[in-house]
Design a binder for these strands. Structure first.
Lengths: 356, 356
DNA sequence: TCGATTTTTGTAATCGATTACATCTTGCGA
DNA sequence: TCGCAAGATGTAATCGATTACAAAAATCGA
């Protein structure tokens, strides 16, 4: 098997172009980056040389000299999570348009991975940082703030005066979720949690509890199942649910995946959704519209969240930030679909008889 | 609202450390990158200065001098596709371990976006390229090969002697899919396609047809529904299916999403899966295990694919490539789940007798 | 046409590291 | 103690662009 070897491309430098056009490197540089500063005739001469030689500036040299890398670091807990993937898409849309590149920092839910990205920031490989983590990564000695680079938090808020937050109104939405279930007649609730240590989870649970209190039944009758933001958490919650005598009838899951896992498992045991138990999710991932029954959930404006976060970051990089733009909180939309419905039985005893 | 402004971090350069330690910059550089080349005493002196000053080398300057960027460009058709997200995870695992960073090139299914990444390659912002696209991106004038950088194709093969392919045995798997359905007694088949212009789709359809021919019934009795690699393609195929008089009983979808879309839609019309129609998908995304019924599908070793691709690329970058490693074709695994079953329909009773 | 002013272009310093080569130390054997 | 090789460190060139400043050319009015 004889393969061609990599073409060893002769690298064309700005000096080569200058020689070809019979001008200095300064002039070539100006033609390429300062429009209108060079006489038309010279300009054409240089452009001809550029075209002819196929010259493309070495971006590393540019970066060194200008101190701008035109790259942004995006740190996310897990890229295979459709929520982050979609946010990243929004970020990408916005940044690409302005000529910025994206370096991804995928933690894959392992915190030890964050150190690497702190170093990356400290060694000035990027002009700014987008955090989807809800906390400031550190490497044991130092944290990302010490890079002096602009940082913006998306998805999960960070409590730090120097860091703008671009997030959704989770807490309000979670409260509304409970109110919605209560409005359908539900009185006993279940909460399927996300990763307990995460800011997002804390916000959502807080909202859930506020909702419970707001129902005004004078008591907080709910079960809480702990887990992480994955399918299997819902399955585990379902196992626990199935063993209960007095099952809750209104379940709120902190993410769509666990809602889906829950539904799948309980249906296997012939529990009907929504007749026997109503389930409401959170996120609005595309997949939630393809389950059976289709999932009632709150849709996050994920793409918009990414765009807005990137926009704020770029303003910060360019020093065009106005204080009133700092914090953004986008609303969520309730998608009323088929996993929620009115309580059909006033008394749990009769419910059980009719189901089994 | 008074916010703290970004700390203006004073940048510490190698010269500062050298002065602090009372040595030359050359020595500092050697301490940091050539272990054992500097006398222990000097070494400790320098390290103390480094620690004390919190020095981290400016990576842009390093890149310029060493001509190594330690970055890799990964071009993918669409990042919100769970298949690519998972492959990217594998790539990330492997590259991160070796100190490489990832710059993402998300085409978002829009080919006009590829130009940007060609320029990025030509301006030497990366040391190598991983293509998940199945073709060589170009910017109108030049294509990525002209960067002279090592390129590796994953997921979708590229026919170019200079580019190693790290892919799966799609064609074989697709053939087996048909054989599997045929083995269950199916004689009329349906094929739900992916994006027709993509290499992946062509490979899979080719395999499907080979499978049909291999059944040896002397005819090719199948319907083909065109679409792209998304849920809605399956829904559209289902609409067409539902209108047919002589419906096929064995459906093969070129990806899990469209299989899921198909199943959801036909079940809405009380078509039973697998009693009335068997469906088999392709990819093995996590979600396929949470549908109802759970989806029979071929699992791609996605994570492994990413790792292997990254591994080949790094070998190429380091010039350690042995020709026999060039092409990798990983096998797929059939996950027999609940959307496939024997033909039950009475018209086929005779067939069943003869086959089973 | 001349000189002053403005515009265009060139020269060389600069960004911050690495590294070839030169020079200085050290260690060791005679 | 001296000489020489090996080892450690320093000096300065280098990577490839941008840009401050200097110099040259063009423009314009008198």
């Amino acid at each position: 098997m004889s393969r061609k070897r990599w073409r060893s491309v002769k690298e064309i430098r700005i000096a080569d172009v200058a020689r070809l056009a019979g001008v200095s490197t300064a002039t070539v540089s100006r033609v390429l980056s300062e429009p209108g500063k060079v006489r038309q005739k010279t300009h054409d001469l240089v452009m001809e040389a550029v075209r002819h030689s196929g010259y493309i500036p070495n971006s590393t040299a540019q970066k060194l000299r200008t101190r701008r890398t035109m790259n942004v670091l995006v740190v996310a807990p897990r890229l295979t999570n459709p929520v982050f993937a979609e946010v990243l898409r929004g970020v990408d849309d916005e940044l690409t348009q302005s000529g910025y590149g994206i370096i991804i920092g995928n933690l894959d839910n392992r915190r030890e991975r964050e150190a690497r990205y702190v170093d990356l920031a400290l060694s000035r490989q990027v002009d700014g940082i987008l955090l989807l983590t809800g906390y400031i990564p550190e490497n044991g000695t130092r944290d990302m703030r010490e890079s002096g680079l602009p940082i913006v938090a998306i998805c999960a808020a960070i409590e730090d005066d120097t860091i703008p937050n671009v997030v959704v109104q989770d807490r309000e939405a979670c409260r509304r979720a409970v109110e919605y279930l209560a409005g359908l007649g539900h009185r006993r609730f279940g909460y399927i949690s996300g990763t307990p240590s995460s800011i997002i989870e804390r916000e959502r649970f807080q909202g859930f509890r506020e909702g419970i209190e707001a129902t005004g039944f004078g008591h907080t009758d709910y079960v809480r199942w702990e887990g992480t933001f994955v399918f299997s958490t819902g399955v585990a919650a379902a196992e626990s649910f199935l063993k209960m005598k007095d099952r809750p009838t209104g379940i709120f899951a902190a993410c769509d995946e666990s809602a889906i896992g829950f539904i799948k498992r309980v249906r296997e045991e012939r529990v009907r959704v929504p007749q026997d138990v109503s389930v409401i999710g959170f996120d609005g991932i595309e997949f939630a519209d393809y389950t059976e029954p289709t999932l009632t959930t709150f849709r996050q404006p994920l793409h918009e969240l990414g765009r807005a976060g990137a926009d704020v970051l770029m303003k910060l990089i360019r020093n065009q930030m106005k204080p009133e733009d700092w914090d953004v909180r986008l609303p969520l939309t309730l998608l009323e679909r088929d996993t929620t419905g009115p309580v059909l039985h006033k008394d749990y005893r009769s419910l059980r008889r009719s189901t089994i």
